[in-house]
């Protein structure tokens, strides 16, 4: 099984973990870490190193971060290698997909590709959903 670390600004990672486990139940090798104001880049790097060291999986780790170009994304990008892949801009659907698919793929890169494609497909608007089901748009007049 591939380990999952969610790594975000503030308490988003803890919130996302809580939300995902409301849907799929408690998960092993699933860690949430967040950065706060007042932390420097070395402290942030140490925080990620500790989470990676805590992860007990043998098949690598996917680190899911909140924002392209943000500190969690940039910090993780510096640690990428054969066993560590990074995804930036994750959503709740993509996190759930990652948790449910991580036993079925062989390495973090493959999981990241699958999950990022899934995340892109699972954002929509109310109007798009109504259209997809052949209904009329609501009349705002």
């Amino acid at each position: 099984m591939i380990g999952i670390i969610v790594f975000c600004h503030g308490t988003m990672a803890q919130g996302m973990k809580h939300a995902a486990e409301m849907i799929v139940g408690p998960q092993p090798d699933f860690t949430a870490i967040g950065i706060e104001p007042g932390q420097g880049r070395q402290q942030v790097s140490d925080l990620l190193d500790a989470a990676i060291a805590d992860n007990n999986t043998d098949n690598g780790i996917l680190v899911m971060t909140d924002l392209v170009g943000g500190t969690p994304c940039n910090t993780t990008a510096l640690k990428m290698g054969k066993d560590i892949e990074m995804l930036a801009g994750f959503s709740l659907p993509s996190l759930i997909k990652a948790l449910l698919s991580r036993s079925e793929v062989s390495d973090p890169r493959e999981l990241a590709d699958l999950v990022s494609e899934y995340g892109r497909q699972h954002m929509t608007t109310g109007t798009e959903m109504l259209r997809a089901h052949g209904r009329q748009e609501p009349d705002h007049g």
């Binding site: 420097g40 880049r41 942030v44 924002l67 392209v68 170009g69 943000g70």
Partner: peptide, 8 residues
């Protein structure tokens, strides 16, 4: 943090 979320 140099270039990071706030800046970008």
């Amino acid at each position: 943090r140099l270039l990071h979320g706030q800046v970008v």
